[in-house]
Amino acid sequence: MRVFLMRLRKKHRVSYIALWGLVFLYGLAILADFIAPYSYSYQDREYALCGPVVPRCIHKGKFTAPFVYGIDIVNPAFKEYRADTSKMYPVKLFTKGPERRIAGFIKTDRYLFGSTEGKIFLFGTDNHGRDVFSRVLYGARVSLSIGVIGVAVSFILGLLVGGASGYFGGRIDTCLMRAVEIIMMFPFFYLMLALRAIFPPNLSSVKAYFLIVIILSLIGWASLARIIRGMVLSIKEEEYVMAARALGLSSFRIITRHILPNTFSYTITALTLSIPGYILGESALSLLGLGIQEPYPSWGNMLSVAVGNLRIITGAPWMLVPGFFIFITVLAFNFLGDGIRDVTDPKTW
């Protein structure tokens, strides 16, 4: 593992940075309870659609301990706010707040940072007055994990089906490929809707979450299976595969040990490039109200409020921050995929 990381750092600086960037993002998601100053459902209706309220260090030209200004409500109807420089609320680390569990385990009442009297809205608030920063952190849990789990399931299915299909040929191949084609025949989006519609619309969020993961995986494995099958067909004729057959190894071992590893150069890149698709798939479902329901946040459903709403986009652009996070996650996975593919190819060592 260490060797792998060292190689990545040497050969693909960008990819190495991307790896740590993703580790950081996942870290934020796991520790959301600790880092986010507010819970995802905490509402401050007075301050709906308020711009970012960030801790400052300079007051009237002098350095002071970090603090936030108070918020002066200029016009509640048009949601205009201004910093009230007369009121200064100190910002401290490890402030006390409502008790909760970090990642479901550790009970604590401390938060990484916060202000007991003032409001810190690092990314502003949404139309319900909820802190966007906190919701982004909690939403990361859904969006980041759905991508990874969904892709993992798809890929295992796709590899095994494609591998078996390509290696054995004949009737197995025909049956499996016809099944794949039937699945691919349906327009992805409608299939997704149809599968979701089979289940009641008001599922508990946990169930809805798993349902979405399963739906996305079941659709995604098909095109991968087809491509893997093609690769297997050509790798099957390579001499080292024939040598493996001559050694009397079982078909399963030949497929998993000799053939599939040689598809990794494609598989890994495809894997990392699909993750964004799943993240966006989840957003699409959420957009239509079929995904993660309010009040639980996901980057997708946070965006759904802003999408199409010109007033919000121009008046409260901080609502698009989840989109930025999706962007950097997708980018990071892309770079990481490139790096992994290059580094795991033994020929480049």
Binding site: Y240, A243, L247, H258, P261, P346
Partner: peptide
């Protein structure tokens, strides 16, 4: 299978590029 083996012409293609030599011979 075990009693009769085969060695191929092209030494660059008859070995699995993703397996270590010891693993290949151990199979």
């Amino acid at each position: 299978r075990r009693e009769s083996q085969i060695i191929f012409q092209n030494p660059y293609r008859s070995l699995n590029p993703r397996m270590r030599v010891a693993e290949m011979v151990m199979e």
